[in-house]
Amino acid sequence: MLIIKNLHAGVEGKQILKGINLTVGAGEVHAIMGPNGSGKSSLASVLAGKENYDVTEGEVIFQGKNLLDMSPEVRAREGVFLAFQYPIEIPGVSNINFLKTALAEIRTYKGLPPLDAKEFLRQSKEKQKLVEFDAKLVNRSLNEGFSGGEKKRNEIFQLAMLEPALSILDETDSGLDIDALRIVSKGVNKLRSSNNAFIIITHYQRLLEYIVPDFVHVLYNGRIVKSGTKELALELEDKGYDWLKEEAHENAATI
């Protein structure tokens, strides 16, 4: 589904991603872990098409198409979804109108007729339930005055509505209490299928107890320095990141 080859990217001349290689297949859940400043969120931003990042080298192929050539909205319509680490508050844009507009544009792009109001409402209700998202929030301004947990649940609610092929969850667990974490994880687990894939970016192993990954990658200094299965996450929890940093430096020295 997603093939990232030797991806180099930076902001204002500063290199942040220094050669990422990653392949994600349909039905897979990949966790990307790593210390602060290793480039995790930058990777998410580059995949979603944030314009202040310059890709200097490498390529990203999504479902056979060159992702890097696409505008952010086209990526979303093709099926890439980024659950933001810090969802933006937009006063005056109602949550539900925003979703309706997004869904309509995605469906038009795919050559599908717009959902009728009744069907939209039905789906919206069903998906709200999935993430225990308060119905009152649906009609409010987008994220305005939402608590941290409500904002994150709103991200997963949107994910559920838009049904993307590839979802990137950027530190969705940060700032969540254990109950909210459970609700968000439950939602994600229900949405997992053999047709879609997830990249879960997290600093902590905790989220991975609820959303069990097929693969775990450790990002350090702009590169994936270690890949493994869910046991790697546990090892990181025990030993921290320092041993990996040392290993990475040794490797760099030998090259």
Binding site: P72, A76, F81, F84, I90, G92, F98, L99, T101, A102
Partner: peptide
């Protein structure tokens, strides 16, 4: 960017933001 990342085209997104303003 938030709006565009949900599939909303740039012009429509700007329209939504003007309305919001």
């Amino acid at each position: 960017f938030y709006l565009r990342a949900r599939g909303i085209g740039e012009e429509t997104a700007k329209g939504l933001l003007i309305n919001a303003f």
